[in-house]
Amino acid sequence: MSPLRESVFRLLLWCFLGTQCVLGMELPTVAVVIDRYLESQGGANALNDLRSLKVVGEITIESQGLEFEVSQQVVAPDKSFTEQDFPGLGLIREVLNGERGWEWHPITGERPLEAHEIEDKTQETDLQRDLRLFELYETIELGEPEVIEGIETTQLVFTDFKGKTEQWFFKANGDLLQKIHTVSSGPDSVFESTDRFYDFQEIGRFRYPSRIKFINPSYVAELKITSCDINLEIDPAVFELPVLILE
């Protein structure tokens, strides 16, 4: 479909199917919210073109006097290298090579990642994940609208096949993602987090938040991305597992 025809199709879709009447309020359908969300990020074609990325950011946990750098390199669909320089500890590294994962930690030493950790890491490397939301979640439903720091938002509630839910909040008219509330769980943790997205900017086809706050009941961590390269050639050597782990 040509870009023009695609735009016309979307316009018609929104006009005729894009709203539903709930208690007198007009709300968009789930499909339209997600469609707008994808569009707000550059559209399906742009997302499909993504093959790799390299991100560098700074984390500040002001209340605890902590500030450090974090970086992540990803090659879709299943390779990643993450590095964080935690104050006083040094570099913590995690690698996923497409099959196996590995962590090197200055305090706890080196170890292979466990299956559930590899699953988490693999999700991070799935750059086209948002194009398959309807496959990845059993249900996606409209939730209660919410006003977040003065911004009216539309809420979608995602429920996966294990019954876990996530709440995503989109700006009511712009569809930019404002907030996500998740409860991650694994064999060793249950962890609640609210991620709040701020200061959207545009570069080329992309719109992106320049700040993200990771909020939990104990503290707030703020991530500022300082650089990002997309579809960069990433040296495959960074994903190589150490010999000791392979043994």
Binding site: E94, E124, F197, R207, Y208, I225, C228, I230
Partner: peptide
């Protein structure tokens, strides 16, 4: 290759899912 210049930030879709384990 698409290169976003200095101080450019990442698209929301990536930021949403990245740093998950981190």
């Amino acid at each position: 290759m698409i290169k976003i210049s200095k101080n450019a930030l990442q698209n929301g879709v990536f930021l949403r899912q990245m740093f998950r384990k981190f």
